[in-house]
Design a protein around this nucleic acid. Structure first.
Lengths: 231, 231
DNA sequence: TTTGCTATTATGTACTACAAATATAGTAAG
DNA sequence: CTTACTATATTTGTAGTACATAATAGCAAA
């Protein structure tokens, strides 16, 4: 069969995709929001007016609005109509970040992104961390002695989450929360217990006594076993 | 006025948000995709069947499908129906990454994320870069002598893009492309010419002769002036 | 000033109808 | 056996109508 060939061809050529009207309207609405420089809370025209102005049916307008609503760009209330919301950057990401739907290569790429990110945290951590932060981290790390596996996973999340939190960068923190399902999935890939060269208490020690560069090395060793599980 | 009181109350209680049927159907469809563990290319039931099975109108089903289509999770063709696509993680991100719609704090956070990321690139670069890569980088860096500003912006993008490309991590590369509008916007915030302590040729020199740690320091100095523009 | 009722209005949902595209089958030609 | 053409069936895409539902604004009543 030449099925693979076709598949390959299709990938190289890219598919011809006839835009639907909903696609066009979506774009036009985005342009409208920008052009009018609306602030959060400002109202949009009602659906029937939009439909008439754009020369499409209300159905089409509703599809486009439905998309924007899903992304948190607008909110709609009965009788009042649609209003611009405070757009939430990461909401969209969460919608597609399902590990089961992501191919292995991308999964590996994303995990590598985490590796880069968490090693990079060092620079922010050493600039911003407080005594209280360290204490809290240490408490988390110490609580994981002789616990079962499901607890360890939760603790893993708590520990790394705290690290992100310490950066004071809330977008970074939310980015991590978003990526959590991916990492949780990676952990389940193999059922032998996790055992990196450097554990959480090791990382805390480094934060207390070591250098930035030590921390990066430590984090690399800490995450490496996970990474190796991905083929 | 008791306006503050109301505002406070609203924040503590959270807003009631009545889910529309399209929201529910969207969730159900996602669950369906997972449950059936469909592979890219596998077909979905046709709209009328979905509508009947879910007990909703075809309109509602179409709204939900429209959302999934926007995110690149499915593709639909006339007569054939909808099929699961290779979901594109970053497509969703692009939909909300409009610098004009992002508030200043998030903008700053994202730029910081870039900073962390590009400093972290060092670890991948030193492991994977080739002679050819360095040559190409050098060519880009050398081409920017005595050029006007719009050229410099393009070159800035080319140079950093090449760095991401050298990591061999295509998700990382696309992540950068996605964030470009943000950085381009940041550059336009101030019109005095860009002048970091370390320029592109400096970075190339470091890659040729310096250490990982040198590169991180260099990248920090290179990006710092941009960062400082954000308030 | 607060509460209760009522009319109004925009969104939410359902349904019907048809246009447009295209996979499939079938047939003929080379 | 491959290619070309044709016809048919089927599914998405768009339009339009109708009504349910919820929220607003205004007025009435306490």
């Amino acid at each position: 069969m030449n099925e693979e060939f076709i598949n390959d061809l299709s990938k190289n050529l890219g598919r011809v995709k006839a835009n639907t009207m909903a696609d066009d309207v979506e774009v036009k609405l985005r342009q409208y929001l920008k052009k009018m420089s609306l602030k959060p809370g400002d109202p949009l025209p009602k659906e029937t007016d939009l439909a008439e102005a754009l020369g499409v049916s209300r159905n089409v307008v509703r599809e486009a609005l439905s998309r924007l609503r899903m992304l948190g760009m607008i909110e709609t209330r009965k009788r009042k109509g649609a209003v611009l919301a405070s757009p939430d950057i990461l909401l969209a990401f969460e919608r597609v970040l399902d590990p089961l739907l992501i191919d292995d290569i991308t999964l590996r790429d994303i995990f590598e992104l985490r590796l880069v990110l968490e090693m990079g945290l060092a620079d922010l951590l050493y600039a911003r961390m407080t005594e209280g932060d360290i204490d809290e981290l240490e408490k988390i790390a110490n609580s994981e002695i002789n616990k079962d596996k499901s607890f360890l996973v939760k603790n893993e999340i708590a520990f790394h989450g705290k690290l992100y939190e310490m950066t004071g960068n809330s977008t970074l923190k939310r980015f991590q929360i978003m990526l959590l399902p991916i990492f949780a999935y990676v952990i389940t890939l193999v059922n032998k217990p996790y055992s990196g060269k450097v554990d959480h208490r090791g990382l805390v020690d480094i934060l207390k006594n070591g250098t930035k560069e030590d921390f990066k090395k430590g984090m690399y060793e800490h995450l490496k076993p996970h990474f190796d599980r991905l083929k």
